[in-house]
Amino acid sequence: MAEIIVVTSGKGGVGKTTSSAAIGTGLALRGHKTVLVDFDVGLRNLDLIMGCERRVVFDLVNVINEEATLNQALIRDKRTEGLYILPASQTRDKDALTQDGVERVLKELSETFDYIVCDSPAGIERGAHLALYFADTAIVVTNPEVSSVRDSDRILGVLQSKSRKAEDGGQVREHLLLTRYNPSRVQAGEMLSVEDVREILAIPLLGVIPESEAVLKASNQGQPVVLDDASDAGQAYLDAIGRFLGEEREHRFLEVQRKGLFSRVFGRKG
């Protein structure tokens, strides 16, 4: 049986697709057979971030409507062994997804994969709800910014009341992934700190991804950022994946990295 992971946030543009690509690739790099499923019907982008946009023939909606088999729709990643992508449809709207159809596809996927990573669309409408409904685990992607934190709390409310686990009296395992973190702005009191966000959302912290030039560079090239393992963001994601798999890893990139001349001369402040 596969573990179903939903990468969700409520708010758009916080890094769900970047994080889905990074986490899925990271799990496959660690030897787990993993499939990335794009639930953003009509606005698919996971294929672009994964660099397989020109290899899409069939998609999730085709499989749900039985116009294609799962094997026809799955795209095998050329760089990472054991990693597959199931793209969303670009032409149809979100109503093309049905609960029964999604359940059937996830069930079939769970026969061959260890992890199913569902990249949720933004919002709390049908697409987002279906992406999280069958989840065992949720990774809530949040930026240290008021609207993102508020929307994350909202999506946690949905997970706690409208997921299948919740309906059966259980609980979806929740993880906080704080992205676009800027330690120097935190130090200057211009950005919510990791502790602030943790205190407000009150869920376990999976990782903190620093705001990084490597993320745009990676998406420009259609390459998940974990493959750039020299980058701060790539390493932070790899740490988060290690923690997800139960390893103890210290949080890095929480402090200002480079010291300016002034602080080097006059020593550490505060």
Binding site: V149, D153, S161, E190, L192, D196, I200
Partner: peptide, 22 residues
Amino acid sequence: QTSASVAKERLQVLVAYERNQR
């Protein structure tokens, strides 16, 4: 007061209210 601490206070009030509503 830093803008981050203003943000935190606003969020604490809002999130508590919205959780209560839920």
